[in-house]
Each structure stands twice: as structure tokens, then as C-alpha cells.
């Protein structure tokens, strides 16, 4: 496999990661969003492995494996269990005006392309062009957190943001040192557990995971 072909496949994977980010933004069903998130993790892990191959840095294979287990298997499983345990009855979630969100998403992609232009000029890596996609994925994750009302989908948005950051690290600098990555992975795992505990508390307090309910915490004036 030549470097050229590897770079091309990596570009395609970047495109798929972007696509899953948009699909999560548009999807109404919670379980479908979870599946999309797992797919995004899969693309990310394959992409990491390919970057590892191109850069001949073997610790990236470990990161890739870590991504695979954590983001494709463990986290989706935990969230899946959460959704089932908490008996989230409303499978379908109200989403604010999908076309508008999509247009904002496109604008964000163009914006991140514009932002990363100077870095692209300086960098010499074959993967430098995917940096814009990585940044866009981060922004789309944030956009997802803004447009969603349900705590579970917000968490998925947060995790998608983390995917974007991870992708940015691999594409801009061929990955962070292994120690850092292990730490981040651990953080995410712990975060997921903490979220789970919080969800139980939110659910028992408000009898719902709709974050709009939190407005009730505000002091009445």
C-alpha cells in the first residue's frame, strides 16, 4: 500500500467521520445516534491505524485499538445500558429545525477550513488536509450539544467532540504521546461512569432526562 493510496483512504475516512457528525446532528432517534457514534469511532480507529502505518509510529496502533474498544464497544454499550435502565420512553426526540441546523453545520465546516488554512500551509504531513475536518467535527459536536434537549444525546455530542479532538491530534501531529492518550482514554471512561451516576440522580429528581427541566433549579423571582 503506497503512501498516496493510504492518504486517499484516510481522506475518505475523514469524509465519513464528517458525514457521521452531520448524520448525528440530523438524526431523531436516540439509539440511531448511538449507532452513528459507534460508526464514527470505528472510522476514527481505522484512520488512526492508517496514520500509524504512514508515519511508522507504532504507538498509534495501540491508540487505534484503544479507540476501537472504548468508543466502538464499551461506551456505546454503557450508554445503551443507560438508555435501557432509565427506561427512556420517548425514543424520538424533538429536534429544532433540521435544515437550519444543517446550514449552520455547513457554515461551520467552511469556517473551520478557513481557520486551519494557515496551519495547512505550514504543515508537511500527508494528513494535514484532514485537520479542517477534525476541527469541524469538534464544532459539530458542540452544535449537537446546543441543539439537543436530552442529557443522553448531549453526552454523545460531548463524546463526538472528543472524537474530533483525537482526530485533530492524529492528523496534525501524528498523534499525542501514548501516555497522554492513555490518560485521556481513562478520563473519558471515568466521565462516562460519572455521567451515568448523574443521569440516575437527574432522573430521580426530575423524573426525566430533559435538560430543559433544569430551568426549574433557577430561583424564582
Amino acid at each position: 500500500m503506497s503512501t498516496q493510496l493510504a492518504a486517499q483512504i484516510n481522506s475518505l475516512l475523514a469524509a465519513f467521520i464528517l458525514l457521521t457528525a452531520f448524520a448525528m446532528l440530523a438524526q431523531r432517534k436516540k439509539l440511531a445516534i448511538l449507532h452513528l457514534f459507534a460508526w464514527q469511532g470505528l472510522f476514527l480507529s481505522v484512520s488512526t491505524a492508517i496514520v500509524g502505518f504512514v508515519a511508522k509510529s507504532h504507538h498509534l496502533y495501540i491508540s487505534s485499538l484503544l479507540t476501537l474498544t472504548l468508543k466502538v464497544v464499551v461506551l456505546p454499550y454503557i450508554l445503551h445500558v443507560l438508555i435501557r435502565k432509565l427506561k427512556i420512553r420517548k425514543e424520538i426526540e424533538a429536534v429544532v429545525n433540521v435544515p437550519t441546523t444543517m446550514l449552520i453545520g455547513i457554515a461551520l465546516v467552511i469556517f473551520s477550513y478557513h481557520l486551519t488554512a494557515p496551519i495547512r500551509e505550514l504543515s508537511t504531513l500527508v494528513t494535514r488536509s484532514t485537520l479542517a475536518v477534525a476541527l469541524a467535527t469538534v464544532m459539530l459536536g458542540l452544535l449537537m450539544m446546543i441543539t439537543r434537549r436530552h442529557a443522553v444525546t448531549q453526552i454523545i455530542g460531548f463524546l463526538a467532540m472528543e472524537n474530533g479532538l483525537f482526530f485533530a491530534a492524529t492528523s496534525a501531529t501524528y498523534g499525542m504521546p501514548l501516555v497522554v492518550e492513555l490518560g485521556v482514554a481513562l478520563d473519558i471512561l471515568i466521565a462516562a461512569f460519572i455521567f451515568g451516576i448523574f443521569f440516575f440522580h437527574i432522573n430521580t429528581t426530575f423524573d426525566s432526562l430533559d435538560v430543559d427541566q433544569m430551568a426549574r433549579l433557577k430561583e424564582e423571582d
Binding site: 469524509a15 455547513i106 477550513y113 488536509s129
Partner: peptide, 9 residues
Amino acid sequence: LGMLSFFIL
């Protein structure tokens, strides 16, 4: 996205 990814990627 196709158009954008041509320019980006």
C-alpha cells in the same frame, strides 16, 4: 459536503 471535501481533502 462533496464539494467542500474536494477543496478540503
